[in-house]
């Protein structure tokens, strides 16, 4: 049995559910929109974890779940919870339910894609960059500072810089242009991250257990994820193959970060040097699969089912 956590219509969750159905793997949804009709408890006794999950009137033994796929959103932002006071019965139940689920995910012997603790590396990009470097990838020269003069010196050394958030909060990667330079004094309020611009081909590599799917990305904007928001912005995705050496390096990186499923962002320079920009621990792979036909959802479904069906 596989447990799918989140909102069933969300693309990655829906695509994995479709593959589980196709493969005949039993699965149920922990549907966040149904928190009012969901209950859960578990016990840790002598290192063994057992418990029950009640979903819409049906009860499941937690120990029967062999795979868990979590695509949870902040429960406070759920449409059902948006207008609820923080201390209402409904809010308290929702928070307790999500907290119980997250605690269980950390201790269950099931295959969890992905557990909370290893997903945390993405909460600090420079912290994650240090882990990435230990796994043999090049990382861009980076400066985090609250001193505008140091940024100007860094710019004169690298000619072209980008800036982006330090944390896991999504931000659009921007080039440090004249208009941004004019606002450089603002960084005195908070250290800000600047990086040398790395020219070359963008690659998104999804790893799931021992399988690897590489997608080449060609775009005319700095941050291809937001090409559709920019005038004239275009992005093309295509499936591609990696060398065996690079495949193994990507797998070692995911494994080293404790991630069964990861989206690795690489940049390959014209002289074939491979930079790793970031590892996404909860990749929205549907964008890549829809554009390339790569069977990523099927690989996730097969992994969750506990064996390569």
């Amino acid at each position: 049995m596989v447990l799918l956590c989140g909102i069933p219509s969300e693309s990655p969750l829906a695509m994995v559910a479709a593959q589980l159905r196709r493969l005949g793997v039993p699965h149920v949804f922990f549907n966040q929109r149904h928190v009012a009709r969901t209950d859960m408890w578990f016990t840790v006794s002598r290192g063994h974890v057992t418990g029950r999950l009640n979903l819409d009137g049906r009860t499941y033994r937690l120990e029967d779940f062999r795979g868990v796929y979590t695509r949870l959103m902040d429960d406070r932002a759920l449409p059902e919870m948006r207008d609820e006071p923080e201390d209402s019965e409904k809010s308290r139940h929702s928070h307790a339910l999500h907290d119980t689920l997250m605690q269980w995910c950390e201790v269950t012997p099931a295959r969890v894609v992905n557990r909370t603790a290893p997903m945390g590396s993405n909460s600090s990009k420079p912290y994650q960059a240090q882990l990435i470097r230990k796994h043999g990838f090049s990382i861009p020269e980076t400066l985090i500072t609250n001193d505008p003069e140091l940024v100007r010196q860094f710019l004169s050394r690298h000619q072209q810089l980008i800036y982006k958030s330090i944390s896991g909060i999504r931000s659009i990667v921007e080039t440090l242009d004249e208009s941004a330079l004019a606002r450089l004094g603002h960084i005195r309020w908070c250290p800000t991250q600047f990086q040398e611009y790395i020219p070359g081909k963008n690659l998104r590599v999804h790893t799931i257990d021992s399988r690897v799917f590489a997608t080449a990305v060609v775009s005319n904007v700095t941050d291809y994820r937001y090409a559709h928001l920019q005038k004239g912005g275009e992005t093309e995705l295509s499936a591609t193959e990696l060398s065996e050496q690079l495949v193994q390096r990507c797998l070692r990186l995911s494994q080293g970060l404790g991630l069964s499923f990861a989206g690795i962002d690489l940049k390959v320079t014209p002289d074939e040097r491979v930079y790793c920009l970031e590892v996404n621990p909860s990749p929205a792979f549907s964008y890549y699969e829809s554009n390339t036909g790569q069977p990523i959802a099927e690989a996730v479904a097969r992994f969750l089912s506990g064996h390569w069906v």
Binding site: S123, P126, A129, S165, I166, S167, G168, C190, P191, T192
Partner: peptide, 12 residues
């Protein structure tokens, strides 16, 4: 956002 940025910076 600023608070999260600072925590992430200190972690690194």
């Amino acid at each position: 956002y600023a608070s999260q940025e600072l925590v992430s910076f200190f972690l690194s």
